[in-house]
Design a protein around this nucleic acid. Structure first.
Lengths: 248, 248
DNA sequence: GAGTGGTCTAGACCACGGT
DNA sequence: CCGTGGTCTAGACCACTCC
């Protein structure tokens, strides 16, 4: 790490060398030096570049692999993770069919509406944007096995996604779009789950009666630096599906 | 690992040395050689006992620490994790107050009923026990901030918890009881979450009307070896609470 | 000061993938 | 065959805790 190396541990702000290496490497992801899908230099090469040992680089790469930022292939190299369907599904989609572990297909989406509006109070708070700033709001219905099971509202700040208006389609896997068109990587997300009753607004879309119990999932998705990028509200029918969590 | 060491990687059943070390150490937890709260030998000592290097022992200990089986304290040593309130709360209790990260207090329990019954079909399946085997079923209500918010049913096989009948009290933190009285460590759990409507049975306990939307959490808790030990159904009021999940 | 875990280094050998 | 990541070892120094 050359001149940036901290020599002593007595500082309260001490960070281990491998953590500093990790920060450096994440910066290369953030600034686009390393594009999704490309392979990054070998451990030995990075060790030379950063003036640390190969073992220290490995510890940083291992941590990033654990966070799904990188993918390692023995004999081939280390690659920047891509927002492929299978990975996004596994990492961010916790709704599963009740019967046997399904084929894990990406839920089909049907776009209902999308328009630019002023952010609500909740959106302002969740996305850390200015009061009343413009946002895009996307309404769609998602289907599993041919049956509508999720009504979802996606909110993103207009400022973060310039020229969003010019899209002529919203793809199924929207995180891949964020990545390919704006270079924004969704790295993690926080979800809050509640039980609610179906309101008239969702009744038609989900094909269920008003008053049907629904799972409300409120997600804040964050980029590589932890900044909130997307707010999503999903109202889910859970008569034949469940939200699966493993502890820890 | 002496004679147990595998010499070559070409076997399909190959396990890295650190994983074999981890298995050995977990066995010491399972058979009670190392009791919760006690400190285990130092890395150097374990390395000598197992005929591996200290770095290999460290990798095994790091993995076990990540699974909350051990706790490390720099300068003091490595300790077997205890089922303390704060850890159990953090690891297994995902229901949180909507407002600001609460004081994280353990929810108070009020015992409604407990009796020995024959296992239902679901219990038989979830707990991998014989059809109609005897189980203990515990019904209780849990409160947060003085208000009842969870009605829960805990089912455990009678065979796994001998003399359960002789208890004169069911403590708040029941996982600590499993550990202290039967030497059973709850190491992980799988949860399934659905939205349901409050039924008459829970209406009185929760002080809400029939038809109120509730979060149904079905948990299968497992011991160190992954065997299912407890089935738990929690019906939760989520008007002022939510179920929190971080992805990944 | 002695002992512990935490970090960092350097080098070795292996299995894997592609040439 | 070579280069890659995966594993294992050995030794050094540090910070922390307790005596």
């Amino acid at each position: 790490m050359g001149a940036a190396l901290q020599e002593t541990d007595t500082n309260i702000g001490f960070k281990p060398l491998y953590a500093q290496v990790k920060d450096q490497l994440i910066r290369r992801l953030v600034d686009g030096t390393w594009q999704p899908g490309t392979n990054i230099p070998s451990e030995q090469e990075l060790a030379r570049q950063l003036n640390v040992s190969q073992g220290t680089v490995r510890k940083a790469l291992d941590a990033m692999t654990a966070e799904s930022l990188l993918v390692r292939h023995q004999g081939r190299g280390t690659f920047v993770a891509e927002p492929e369907d299978s990975r996004i599904l596994f990492q961010f989609f916790r709704l599963t069919s009740d019967e046997h572990a399904e084929k894990e297909t990406f839920p089909e989406s049907r776009l209902l509406d999308w328009s630019e509006e002023k952010a609500s109070a909740q959106e302002t708070r969740s996305l850390s944007i200015a009061d009343g700033a413009p946002v895009w709001r996307i309404e769609r219905v998602r289907e599993l096995g041919g049956r509508p099971v999720i009504a979802e509202t996606i909110t993103i700040p207009s400022a973060t996604f310039p020229d969003f208006r010019e899209l002529d389609e919203i793809p199924n896997n929207i995180y891949r779009l964020y990545s390919s068109r704006w270079g924004i990587t969704i790295a993690k997300a926080d979800e809050r789950v509640k039980a609610i009753l179906c309101e008239p607004r969702d009744s038609a879309a989900l094909g269920c009666g008003v008053g049907t119990p629904l799972l409300l999932i409120t997600r804040i998705a964050r980029d590589l630096e932890g900044n909130p990028v997307e707010l999503r509200s999903s109202r889910c029918l859970t008569s034949d599906q469940h939200y699966a969590v493993s502890l820890p």
